[in-house]
């Protein structure tokens, strides 16, 4: 099927099989390998991207279903190569170790903070509860998102 998807602000046209997930489309067809594929059945959260403003699991959505939608991937948060404010806060908080889960956490947190800029720790924990990290023990990830929220409030 021929589809056109807006990815990180640019229209991308491609011909894909119906069975191809959005995650594989981003990685294989568009070479946007920042989106990581972990469990491939919706459990780990590593492949989380933003579609039309909402965090979704790109392994549980077909690429053909994204036709006409606006997709933001981790690459879209740092278009000029400079880290975005959430990424910078997470870096400052040593939020990550091996980095495999990182893009999923960052995209989930990004969508959540945009909708809930005043969120507190409990709400952030709840929002990130669907993402699995095997390294950090999560505390540093929460710290990073809280720091980003605080910095954005303080302008």
């Amino acid at each position: 099927m021929d589809i056109t998807v807006s990815v990180n602000g640019a229209a991308r046209a491609a011909s894909v099989e119906a069975r191809k997930t959005l995650a594989d489309f981003l990685r294989e067809d568009l070479d946007l390998t920042g989106t990581h594929v972990g469990c491939e059945h919706g459990v780990c959260g590593a492949c989380t991207v933003i579609v039309d403003g909402r965090a979704v699991r790109s392994c549980l959505m077909l690429a053909v279903q994204a036709a006409g939608s606006e997709v933001t991937t981790i690459e879209g948060l740092a278009p000029d190569g400079a880290l975005g404010p959430l990424q910078q806060a997470m870096r400052d908080s040593h939020s990550f170790q091996c980095g495999f889960c990182t893009p999923g956490f960052v995209m989930q947190a990004s969508a959540f903070l945009r909708a809930h800029p005043d969120a507190g720790e409990q709400e952030i924990r709840e929002a990130l509860s669907g993402n699995i990290c095997r390294c950090t023990g999560y505390q540093s990830i929460i710290d990073g998102v809280l720091l980003a929220a605080r910095r954005s409030r303080e302008g």
Partner: peptide
């Protein structure tokens, strides 16, 4: 139900 990203879809 699931998590936020699950309820998105």
């Amino acid at each position: 139900i699931g998590h936020e990203a699950i309820r998105s879809r």
